[in-house]
Amino acid sequence: MKEHKFFVQFRELRNQTLAIADSIPVHMMDVVPPGFNNSIRWNLGHILVAWDYGIFPKVNENPQMPALYYRLFSKGTRPDAWTEEPPEYDEIIGFLSSQVDEILAVSNGRMDDLIAQPFLRVKYLRGMYSFHIREEQHHLDCIQRIKAAVETSSVVN
């Protein structure tokens, strides 16, 4: 059975995200360089929460990510406001690795289905994939820009 084109895009993009994350030294994960609101850890966590909330409830499934992730990585949150310890880098990477198969499993055969609750102007599951692929690409770009800013500044020695 051929995977839906969005499944292929999602899997390839997530592999890129994991490759970039793997190239970043752990000591850079929580640096917020001047001109940025968030860290690399925040962006990776936000990618998880965005996909989790953007897919599972839309197909009448419970979100899969721990509540801590929603408290720390939802839209509008920032590391400088955290009152809880963020998850370890390895845990975030583990979730990033496993999330793809979990999402594809609940989406298989449903891409043309109406979602449980419309999101912006999106009405079908395929539209949620389109939105979240663009969202992950945006956050991957942010991660790369943060990494470059940290590498060229004296923020981390």
Score class of each variant (00 low, 15 high):
residue 2 K to L: 11
residue 4 H to N: 10
residue 5 K to F: 12
residue 7 F to V: 08
residue 8 V to F: 07
residue 9 Q to H: 11
residue 10 F to A: 03
residue 10 F to M: 12
residue 11 R to C: 00
residue 12 E to G: 03
residue 14 R to N: 08
residue 17 T to M: 03
residue 17 T to H: 05
residue 18 L to G: 07
residue 18 L to F: 06
residue 20 I to M: 09
residue 20 I to H: 03
residue 23 S to D: 11
residue 23 S to W: 00
residue 27 H to M: 06
residue 30 D to R: 09
residue 30 D to L: 08
residue 31 V to K: 14
residue 31 V to M: 12
residue 33 P to G: 04
residue 33 P to W: 03
residue 37 N to R: 13
residue 39 S to K: 07
residue 40 I to A: 02
residue 40 I to W: 01
residue 41 R to D: 03
residue 42 W to V: 02
residue 42 W to A: 02
residue 43 N to E: 05
residue 45 G to C: 05
residue 49 V to M: 02
residue 49 V to H: 01
residue 51 W to M: 08
residue 51 W to V: 05
residue 52 D to S: 00
residue 53 Y to P: 01
residue 54 G to T: 10
residue 54 G to R: 07
residue 54 G to M: 05
residue 54 G to P: 05
residue 55 I to Q: 02
residue 57 P to A: 00
residue 57 P to Q: 01
residue 57 P to T: 04
residue 58 K to Y: 06
residue 59 V to M: 06
residue 60 N to H: 10
residue 60 N to Y: 02
residue 61 E to L: 09
residue 61 E to G: 03
residue 70 Y to K: 12
residue 70 Y to Q: 10
residue 73 F to C: 07
residue 73 F to Y: 15
residue 73 F to M: 06
residue 75 K to H: 11
residue 77 T to W: 04
residue 78 R to A: 15
residue 81 A to R: 10
residue 82 W to I: 09
residue 82 W to G: 02
residue 83 T to V: 12
residue 88 E to Q: 13
residue 89 Y to P: 00
residue 90 D to K: 12
residue 92 I to W: 01
residue 93 I to W: 02
residue 93 I to Y: 00
residue 96 L to E: 09
residue 98 S to E: 15
residue 101 D to W: 01
residue 102 E to S: 15
residue 102 E to R: 14
residue 103 I to G: 04
residue 103 I to M: 12
residue 103 I to A: 06
residue 104 L to H: 02
residue 105 A to M: 09
residue 106 V to C: 10
residue 106 V to E: 08
residue 108 N to Y: 09
residue 108 N to R: 15
residue 108 N to E: 15
residue 109 G to N: 07
residue 114 L to T: 10
residue 114 L to I: 01
residue 115 I to N: 01
residue 117 Q to D: 14
residue 118 P to Y: 06
residue 119 F to V: 13
residue 122 V to R: 14
residue 122 V to S: 12
residue 123 K to Y: 12
residue 124 Y to M: 14
residue 126 R to S: 12
residue 128 M to L: 15
residue 128 M to S: 12
residue 128 M to I: 08
residue 129 Y to V: 01
residue 130 S to L: 11
residue 130 S to E: 14
residue 131 F to W: 13
residue 132 H to M: 08
residue 132 H to V: 03
residue 133 I to Y: 11
residue 133 I to Q: 12
residue 133 I to A: 08
residue 134 R to H: 14
residue 135 E to L: 09
residue 135 E to K: 11
residue 136 E to I: 05
residue 137 Q to H: 05
residue 138 H to K: 15
residue 140 L to H: 02
residue 140 L to N: 02
residue 146 I to F: 03
residue 148 A to E: 14
residue 149 A to F: 04
residue 149 A to M: 11
residue 150 V to G: 01
residue 151 E to T: 11
residue 152 T to F: 10
residue 152 T to E: 14
residue 153 S to F: 02
residue 155 V to D: 15
